[in-house]
């Protein structure tokens, strides 16, 4: 495994840490809606949900995080960030998921700028004040901090499941050891997702792979609709 031969930088660990103050704690990645519908109520169902998250939203985020880290290290023309931004939008059909990604991207940018400032990060902000989350992670690791495309992909793949697992503990009172074990059990799958993402990191934005997870799209939309009508604890 490629990841086993490298020592993760402190930047990688910090960005993946649940204590990173980038606003992620208020997002459940569709888990709250799934709980509301009775689709997730125990550790076995949480493992299934996380498996879907990893290969759906997680794989998509990993592809763009790796591409952004690759592009940031090469100091691409700022126009490249517009293209990545538009292509991530195109691969995210749910407006609620796009909004959640931009909200976390903006928060990660704010926290990341204080820790790992770079010219590339500032260039990204000239494109949009709320860049997508995986693109920000990729730029932080590729430009300002010390990280590779595969590490950027691994961070976002991990975050795609660690957030919902934490939300499950808070929403269901689930055994935290079981929830943590559910995340840890995805180690090889998450590495596979990150390595696949790294293989496409150098492709032009239009050619980057797209994953599809209609159930997550629908959960995100329903979550937002319920927000307006009744109780919701999480922003997504």
């Amino acid at each position: 495994m490629a990841l086993r031969t490298t020592t993760a930088s402190l930047a990688v660990l910090t960005l993946a840490d649940a204590r990173f103050p980038g606003g992620g704690h208020a997002h459940s990645g569709g888990l709250e809606e799934a709980v509301h519908r009775g689709a997730v109520s125990d550790p076995r169902q949480l493992r299934e949900f996380l498996h879907g998250r990893l290969h759906g939203a997680g794989a998509q985020a990993a592809v763009f995080a790796a591409a952004a880290a690759h592009a940031a290290a090469r100091r691409v023309h700022p126009h490249h960030w517009s293209r990545l931004d538009a292509e991530f939008d195109a691969r995210t059909p749910s407006p609620a998921q796009r909004a959640a990604s931009r909200a976390q991207g903006r928060g990660t940018f704010r926290a990341g700028r204080a820790a790992w400032p770079s010219e590339v990060l500032d260039e990204l902000l000239t494109i949009t004040g709320s860049p997508h989350h995986p693109v920000v992670v990729g730029v932080l690791l590729g430009a300002g901090a010390s990280g590779t495309p595969v590490e950027a992909a691994f961070v976002t793949a991990y975050l795609s499941v660690s957030g919902p697992a934490s939300a499950a503990v808070r929403l269901l009172g689930l055994d935290p050891f079981a929830a943590n074990a559910a995340v840890a059990a995805l180690e090889h799958e998450a590495e596979g997702v990150a390595e696949a993402a790294a293989r496409s990191a150098g492709e032009s934005p239009e050619d980057l792979p797209g994953t599809s997870a209609p159930a997550l799209d629908l959960l995100a939309q329903e979550h937002q609709r319920h927000h307006r009508e009744e109780v919701r604890l999480f922003a997504s």
Partner: peptide, 18 residues
Amino acid sequence: AVQTGACPHTAIRDDITA
């Protein structure tokens, strides 16, 4: 109004992003 992800103290102290 902001959503706090079931952790109101986190949203005003540890992670003030929202």
